[in-house]
Each structure stands twice: as C-alpha cells, then as structure tokens.
Design a protein around this nucleic acid. Structure first.
Lengths: 338, 338
DNA sequence: TTGTAAGCGTTATCAG
DNA sequence: CTGATAACGCTTACAA
C-alpha cells in the first residue's frame, strides 16, 4: 500500500510537502515539485487512507443514512420501495462530492450515538422522525442533520419535505368534487407531527369545507404490508356506505384495490380509490391509480445539497424546503354525477 | 470523547490492560480489574474508534455493497426495487455481526480498488457481475467477495444464486403445457454468463423439448424502465401470432400487461403473461401475475452468512448456493385447451 | 520553499 | 498479572 511517505521518498521531499500538494495548499510549493509529486501519486497509485485522516481530523467523510427502528417496524429502511427511490440519488450526489454513504439501522438513541462516534460520522440523513427522545438527541448533535419527511423542527436541523397537508386536501377535495361524501381514510398509524398526520388534516379540512361531517369510523390505520392492505380492501368491500377511499400511500391504495376486487367490487365503478406518491406501480395496476405525485429523486438530491452546504459551513438561508405535489388523474376515481 | 486512555486513567491501569479486557483477552487480568474496567467503560461511555482500529489493524469492519455502473445503466443499485429487497436483510445481518455497510457505486475497476484501499474494506458484495475485466479484478482481491446473481466462478469467490435456468424452463414449459406455442421472450439485454442468459437457455430448451422451433423474432430485449416496458406491451399487441409472453422480471411483465391492456388486449384472454421474481407487485396487478417465485431476503441472508464464514476464516465447503424457485400460479395465463 | 516532529486512538510486542 | 513503547498513515504547528 502506497503511503504519503512512499511518495515523499520517491520524489525526495518531505511528507508535509506531499500532504500540502494533495490538499491544494500549493501556495508555497514550486511548480516543479508539484508536478513531480502528482506524477508519483499517479504512478505509485497512491490512495489516501481515510482511517488515518479520520483519526487525526476527527472527520471522516462518512455520511450516515439512518433508519430508526421503532418497536413495531422490524425491517430496515431499504425495505420500503419508496425510500429506496431516493437513496440512490443520495449515494450518487454524495459520491460526486467526495463523501461516503453508510447505511445503518438503529433502535435506540444510544445506538445512534455509538455509531456516530465509532466512525466520526460527518453528517446524518433520517426519514420519518417524530417529536420524541430520538429527535431530541438529533437536535443536540453538532454534525449536520438533514431530515426527510419529518415535521419536527429545530434550528440545527434541515428538512426536506412535501406539501403533505395540501396533498391530503387536494386528494380529498378531488373526491368531493366528483360527488363523493363517504370517503374513507386509509393510512399507516397517524402519529402527531408526522407526514400522515398532515395528510390527515388535509383530509379533514377538505371535508369540513364541504360541510361533510368527519366520521372516525371511516379512518383505517393499518400496517403497509401487502397482506394487511389486501385484507383491508376486502373488508372495505363490506361497507356499503363508502364510495371512495383516500390511501396515503400508493402501495396501500394498490393493496386495497386488489382486496376490493377480490371481494367482487369494481374500481372505480363500485368504489373509487386515490393514492399518494405516484410510484411506478400506479401505471401498472388496472385501473391505473389516480394519485398525488411527488418527486422522490429530487427529494434525495435536495437533501444532499442541504448536507453539502452545511458541511461547507455555507449559510443556510432557509432550513426547510417543501416540495410541491400535484394530482395525477388516472382511472381509479369515478364521478358520481350524471 | 472517551478513549481507552481515559478508561485506563480512571481505573488506574494501563491502556494495554483496558484493550485486553475489551477484546476478551482476559486470561491474564484479575477478576477485579476486569470488573472495574467494565464499569468505567459503561459510566464513561466508551466507544471504540474505528478509524484508529482500522489504522493499526488494516481491517475496518466495513463491508462494501458495490453497484457496478456499466455504461448503459445510469442509476445506482438501490434504484431497483428488487435489489432493495435484500439489501435490508444484508444490513441487518451484518450489523448483528458487528459489521458496517457502505453503499458505493463504481464505474471502473480502479474506482473499486481505490474505494477498497481508502477504507480498508473487509469484504464485498456485488450483484450481476459478468465475465469481464471487472470480475477479473474482483477475483484477484484478497478480501472475501460474495456475488449475488452472477454466473461467473472463481475459487476465491462465493456465489449465491438462483435456479435461473430451471426458472426459465419451468415458466416456458408451463405455457407450453397450457397449449401455447408462439411464446415471446422479453428481458433486459441477454448477456453471456448472466442471469437472463440462463433463463433464456431454459426458455429455448423447453421449446426444443416440445419441438417448437425457436424464433429470434420472438425475443425482445428491452430496458426495464416503465415507459419502455409499457411500450413493449403495446407493440406486442400488434403481433397477432403471439399467444403468450415470458418476461424475466415481474416489473417487465407488469409493464407489458399494462401496455397490452392499453392497446385493447385482454390478459389472459387474448394473451398470457408470466413473470419472474414474485415481488409484491404480482398481487396488485389485475389479473394477478403468474410468476416464478424466489426468496430475496433469504438471498441476502445467505450472502451474509457466506461473508461471515469467510471473514472468520471458516472453511467453505461449497462456494455456491443455488436457491430453489417455484412456479406461483395466479391469473395471468390462460389455457388454450377446451 | 521545504522539513521536523508531535499526536490522533488503538493494538501488539515484549519486558517486567 | 500488568505496563511501556512503537507503530499504523496522516495532518499541522512550528522551524529552518
């Protein structure tokens, strides 16, 4: 393994000079030395040893992508097809900026702290953080933290999120405009200050605006695994009163459609369904799923931009960016008029 | 940050002793010292610094999950919903064994080498490796390499794969048994010694066995992005002669079904479709997709077991494990008889 | 313009 | 049973 020392010896200079050249602190080094060092680096195939760098600088160029395992969710972040969509974008952008991505699942706050110190982690991405002890810990960190899809706020922390409230509102409003009144709300568990909570508010406000009374027995909180979503669809089929359902994730919506169909119901003729996310799946179901669109790769890219600005100590003008959503009309909602 | 030195001072012993206790080299240390050291570790919150460890031991507990960017594929591994299914399993199992997972996309062989040396990477996972210069480089590494879904073989390298040939054969045979003869083969590009190549052989052999002539104009090599798959479906609808299509990935199959439907064809009445992988999507399309099942999380788990055995220098009895597949009959294939 | 030397946290060797 | 000490590769004052 070629080290700085090897380069220094080969060229006949000191380690300092080599190190300086490597870091572009080239002010005090002659053109010729620079050239010879650069050549030696190439021919000897020098690669910096990050462990050594990290040891001396207590910074590692490692960015952690953290999946916080809450008690009920057993699998790690990458299980979720939606999340995996932007993790690719994150790796790419980080790499282009000279950083490395570590994936890590943590269960407790101290798991997280240990991880950070084990590697001198330089920065952190997290998704779906709530107002709890874990968030508390995050906000006390000295390294940059960028949250994705989280409704918790702190001066130290950047957020990239979505118009979730608007999404919930627009989806519901769309159903109402099509003449629906008995609109079910299906989602994973609605936790305060969470993405789903926001969409839920949008749903309720749209109802209220249309003077449709909110009914608690129309909200269905479910796990997102395929069996439960399909089962939910089947049981929804039994509810004669419901004419439409707003599901806060496309995979949920698709599962419901499948269950509905299994129970002999036709979408959208018997019951309308609208989703959220606009993943590819929406174009593969039949009927194709009407949904609220969001741009997942852009989310990832923006998250990394935030991260880079913070790592470079650039001033952050705005800690939050909220990406727009819009409705994509396809075939899963029927108008009750005419 | 608490270091070994801090612990040593607190307890009143040397760093060596602390280090020994940490590593269970406890033979030569008194019970009492051990207890006191352990307590100090707890109360002071000591966490080992991996950079330092890595520096001195040239091993880092970092395992790389490599995505090899070939010229045509632009995005990184995690973009693929299928791959993300087992990457979660990998992170989990690695973590349980005290390792860390780095995700990294590389374009060239030297990118890879640089990455390895930068971090003293202890082991590597790769998917979809072909017989090329990149593989050459992998097989010359001194660290454990575990390949997933690759048909290249080398004494240094472990493989976890699938009965791809059988899958291709069984899928095709199933269609033939249902009376189909004009069976299209749809897949991403068929590269020698690749997963798809094997499935293709299975397809051809099943045809041959049934004395159905193989026709090159029935094979469709396509990208897997949703637009092209749907377009393929639509264009397949124009081919009056085809009665069934075997797609080597469920996302492909689903796209084709969608395109077919868009072009006014009914699956399976007008044309039958069979997929491969058995991802959740299969139960969300309508008709539900008949497919070849594989166990993706198990793949991930086994890959890690291989990795652990190699890292522990356990003897590897068998460098290859081939997971079984089986047919899952759903609704997308129609029998042409009666 | 370049070099010396200390030190980052850990482990391993060898000597008490 | 325990402790010095050197070494891993790199950066950074400080010297020259």
């Amino acid at each position: 393994m070629t080290t700085i020392k090897d380069i220094a010896q080969a060229v006949g200079v000191s380690c300092t000079t080599v190190s300086n050249v490597i870091h572009g602190k080239t002010g005090r080094v002659s053109e010729e030395t620079i050239a010879r060092i650069k050549e030696a680096i190439d021919t000897l195939g020098y690669v910096p040893n990050m462990s050594a760098r990290s040891l001396v600088s207590s910074s590692s160029k490692v960015i952690g992508m953290i999946s916080h395992l809450t008690s009920n969710k057993k699998e790690s972040i990458v299980e979720d097809p939606f999340h995996s969509a932007f993790i690719g974008a994150i790796e790419k952008t980080l790499r282009e900026n000279g950083y490395y991505l570590m994936l890590r699942t943590v269960e407790t706050t101290s798991d997280l702290m240990n991880f950070l110190r084990t590697w001198n982690v330089d920065g952190l991405f997290c998704t779906g953080v709530f107002q709890d002890e874990f968030f508390e810990a995050l906000s006390n960190l000295t390294i940059p933290v960028v949250l994705i899809d989280s409704y918790v706020s702190h001066p130290n922390i950047c957020n990239v999120g979505l118009e979730d409230y608007d999404g919930g509102y627009i989806a519901t409003r769309y159903l109402i405009d099509k003449g629906h009144e008995k609109i079910a709300f299906a989602s994973p568990s609605i936790r305060e200050k969470g993405v789903v909570f926001e969409r839920f508010q949008g749903y309720k406000d749209a109802l209220k605006e249309a003077s449709i009374p909110f009914r608690q027995d129309l909200v269905f909180e479910q796990e997102l695994d395929i069996d439960t979503t399909i089962a939910l669809g089947s049981s929804l089929a039994l509810r004669k009163d419901i004419t439409a359902v707003f599901a806060t994730a496309d995979i949920l919506a698709a599962g419901i459609m499948s269950g509905l169909k299994q129970a002999g119901k036709k979408v959208p003729d018997d019951i309308s369904v609208i989703g959220f996310d606009d993943i590819n799946l929406c174009r593969l179901t039949s009927p194709k799923l009407t949904t609220i669109h969001q741009d997942a790769p852009l989310k990832g890219k923006l998250a990394v931009y935030f991260m880079m600005d913070k790592l470079d100590n650039k001033p952050i003008l705005n800690r939050e960016v909220i990406l727009p959503i819009h409705l994509v009309e396809r075939e899963s909602v029927k108008s009750l008029y005419q």
